[in-house]
């Protein structure tokens, strides 16, 4: 079963705190999005391993864009 991390708000990716293949736990920090001059950490929704990361640092994301896929 895989779950996608969706961007909860639009903004710019300023940091990515995970790697493809790494195992992650729920509530780990996945990425940090900067919006309204404030950095908002986005957390992993479930335990699993990172299958795919669809963004890179500096990208702008819109709300509901897929950031990463957890398996």
């Amino acid at each position: 079963m895989s779950e996608e991390i969706l961007a909860p708000l639009s903004g710019k990716i300023v940091a990515i705190n995970m790697e493809i293949g790494a195992s992650v736990e729920e509530d780990d920090e996945a990425v940090i999005i900067e919006a309204m001059k404030m950095e908002t950490p986005i957390y992993v929704p479930c335990d699993g391993t990172v299958k795919e990361i669809k963004v890179k640092v500096g990208d702008s994301v819109e709300e509901d864009d897929v950031i990463a896929v957890i398996e």
Binding site: P8, L9, S10, D27, A35, M36, K37, M38, T40, P41, I42, Y43, P45, E63
Partner: peptide, 23 residues
């Protein structure tokens, strides 16, 4: 704008850190 919105977001994540209220 946008200080009050940021404050709402910060107080919100204190209660539930996956609740993104900013937008």
């Amino acid at each position: 704008v946008p200080m009050a919105a940021r404050v709402v977001h910060k107080v919100g994540i204190e209660a539930d850190k996956k609740n993104y209220l900013l937008m």
